[in-house]
Nucleic acid binder design. Structure first.
Lengths: 255, 255
DNA sequence: CTGATATTGCGTTCAATTGGTACATTTGGG
DNA sequence: CCCAAATGTACCAATTGAACGCAATATCAG
């Protein structure tokens, strides 16, 4: 029973015919016999909780990788786009579909999968763990700290490393971080997020100044509650305003 | 199943082991019939000439895309890594193998290829047109200006656009540009390159100051020749020094 | 109520980087 | 021999970034 893909996807209007897990091995063997390259999508799902960056992993089902953790992935159906496949996997695993999702990189080394030649496209997703908490009932799923990771199946450790570096860079240039926080958040929460992901200490006041100078945070008028000290204001990110900003193509050469 | 991905066993030294086109069509048809997703690599090969950024294209062979230009691509062999496939294509088309090459993005929309479901991995390559000039004898190949492009086959226009934007960003953060220039170059040439790729005007003296402050250019002691004015010094890029520089993970939030 | 404590929110200061400009220098060409 | 057209250096102003001081505001313990 261990790994099971929720069957609720089969009757969705999308027409996705999710392959039962026991069949995947058969399919892979078939691919290998025919000399065909399989295509899969692996999702690196990041969350933020307890001031730490977490990643959602599942116990690998292959004997070879017994007790190792692996990313959430599946073969791509013939009639779905790559992005659709990634969204499908997210929906299946977390029940969420309005999440941040972006393609990061394709991994296609010949020997990366023990059963067959499989090229996988890695996607990065950021979700709010609070919203997500109720959905994880499957005890094979687990949130792991990104900083202290046990061994992983396949080349998933490498994939995760690439996605984590991608995230570290990306979060400084694009407003991804808010997907990991509640809709309303304090500046302290936001700074904790950045400090955790980038593993740096930032000056509280300069951080504040920087974000306000971008003029994309809106004061909601509400305050934090349940904090044992002076509560901070709660803000929300103005995505519309961000969209309307013109992108500059000159950042300055620096390497 | 009879589907066979070309094994490309012919002598590699010939440099031109392009799979005959009639075979590709057969393979694609077979893929489509069997409901299998094919994997290809498409190379976006940039060059710099006459102070303009160019891209190497080939006349499409499919009737549907008659007279349209397409990127240089091929199906991925079962026994080669994705990177290897990209290098193979470059070698086949340009005769060069010591080139800059990097994966950019996978494109896998369902309808992107008219003959079958094909997921393609786009690679970006930068080569020095001067070195390359002698190799292009095939008159189906042509260097095109990036700024003024005619219609292209498949979704290759979209792929090119993505790669061009990728290049614009990448060249400001990594020393790619030197791959487009001769080993020795003047500061003027370097600036022209940046101005052409980014489509901006830069101040000559600030550009100079910026690059020298990075301390990665080495004075070769030689001067330009054949210029109708005072010749500039020729520099070369010190790649070792660049490699040794420590990468900072904090650039400053800005979006 | 009151003071201790912790954190928010808002300044200031100073150094570093960037942008803009003046000008001397060096070559080729009439 | 002088001019045109670049290169190469020096300098100043404006902006940005890093470090830090301090009052204001909340909780909590007594």
């Amino acid at each position: 029973m261990s790994l099971k893909i929720p069957s609720d996807t089969t009757d969705k209007t999308s027409g996705n015919t999710v392959t039962p897990q026991k069949n995947i091995k058969t399919i892979l063997k078939q691919l290998e016999n025919d000399g065909i390259i399989g295509i899969s999508v692996d999702c690196v799902i990041f969350g933020f909780d307890d001031n730490e960056l977490k990643v959602l992993l599942i116990k690998s089902d292959l004997e070879k990788f017994d007790n190792k953790w692996s990313l959430l992935g599946d073969l791509v159906n013939n009639h779905e786009d790559l992005d659709q496949a990634a969204y499908r996997i997210l929906k299946e695993r977390t029940g969420l579909d309005d999440v941040y999702l972006e393609q990061v990189k394709a991994f296609g080394e010949v020997g990366r999968h023990p059963a067959a030649r499989v090229v996988t496209i890695a996607y990065c997703s950021l979700i709010n763990i609070e919203h997500h908490k109720l959905k994880i009932l499957d005890n094979e799923l687990h949130w792991h700290r990104v900083t202290t990771l046990s061994e992983m199946a396949f080349d998933h450790r490498q994939i995760l490393d690439v996605c984590y570096e991608w995230l570290q860079k990306r979060i400084q240039e694009h407003p991804l971080g808010f997907s990991l926080l509640p809709k309303q958040f304090s500046l302290r929460e936001l700074q904790n997020l950045y400090e955790a992901i980038l593993d740096v200490k930032l000056d509280r006041r300069n951080f504040r100044k920087k974000f306000f100078s971008m003029d994309l945070l809106e004061d909601t008028g509400e305050l934090e509650s349940d904090v044992p000290h002076r509560p901070g204001k709660l803000y929300k990110f103005n995505y519309d305003k961000y969209q309307k900003k013109e992108r500059k193509k000159w950042f300055g050469i620096d390497f």
